[in-house]
């Protein structure tokens, strides 16, 4: 067994009487290609929010490389190596693609607090921003505002920003959600080509994507882990089939 990069121990989250995460013991291994699946309302996004520090757990712990980060601030977790994308595009819609990347890179390089030097004066910030765009073949759109881009390309900018933060752990929250099927292969290609050293957790509804991409699948139902294992094992799991996959075939 390889070493865990990200781990949760008995993670619980309640909103009042509503238990949205229950006793989640989860581990993401180095270089993982791990999918998190589950029906709507299973608590998948809540789980991502607990990992990134948007929400703090009612109890339990989150560990990054064995270090307890349960009470670490969001921005520190990002600096420690956890990056995410959002289920619904969360970009600076009125700013250009370049500016979107610029803001991320300047925070990542610790240059965003500088007050008496014009933005753009530091060559390495611009270079890294452009490199991140080049990597996903977005450089052609650098000068356009996010609003001017088709939705599929906006989804790519989400991923470009996350990658520009040089993460150890990448959490992709339904990266292809809302993208017309004609464009979705662009996003899947990018996901398949992600660097091996990044541990990836992908939340996805599309079973084709999940089974093509994942080497490990965790099934979340009503806030708790129902099953976890390699894809063929999950596909054969009777409980999973009845609760989740079974429902899917009736759609």
């Amino acid at each position: 067994m390889s070493e865990a990069v990200l781990e949760t121990r008995d993670l619980n989250k309640n909103f009042g009487a509503l238990q949205v995460s229950r006793n989640i013991n989860f581990r993401l291994d180095a270089g993982a290609r791990h999918a998190l699946i589950g029906p709507n309302g299973a608590g998948k996004t809540t789980f991502v929010n607990l990992l990134t520090g948007v929400l703090s757990p009612t109890d339990g712990a989150v560990l990054l490389n064995g270090r307890d980060i349960t009470h670490m601030r969001q921005d520190r977790r990002v600096k420690a190596g956890i990056a995410r994308t959002f289920q619904i595009n969360t970009l600076f819609a009125g700013l250009t693609v370049l500016e979107n990347l610029y803001l991320a890179v300047s925070e990542h390089l610790g240059r965003a607090g500088a007050m008496f030097r014009p933005a753009g004066a530091r060559r390495e910030v611009v270079d890294e921003a452009m490199a991140a765009l080049d990597g996903l073949r977005l450089a052609d759109d650098a000068g356009k505002t996010i609003r001017e881009l088709p939705y599929g390309r906006q989804r790519l900018v989400e991923i470009a920003i996350a990658l520009a933060l040089k993460p150890k752990v990448l959490l992709l929250d339904e990266p292809a959600a809302g993208v017309p099927s004609a464009e979705s292969h662009l996003i899947l290609d990018v996901i398949e080509a992600l660097p091996e050293d990044i541990a990836v957790l992908i939340i996805e509804h599309d079973m084709d994507v999940v089974f093509r991409f994942a080497r490990e699948i965790t099934v979340l139902v009503q806030g708790g882990i129902l099953a976890s294992g390699p894809p063929d094992e999950i596909a054969a799991n009777a409980e999973v089939r009845s609760v989740y996959l079974g429902e899917g075939t009736h759609d």
């Binding site: 969360t90 819609a93 700013l95 500016e99 610029y102 925070e107 965003a112 607090g113 014009p118 933005a119």
Partner: peptide
């Protein structure tokens, strides 16, 4: 000087989308 600096850009980022700024580690 401040508004055209990286700090000033970060402020605009916060105005435009606070959640995103948290997520890029600001």
């Amino acid at each position: 000087a401040i508004i055209y600096s990286p700090f000033g850009r970060a402020l605009v980022g916060i105005r435009e989308n606070t959640r995103r700024m948290h997520a890029v580690g600001s």
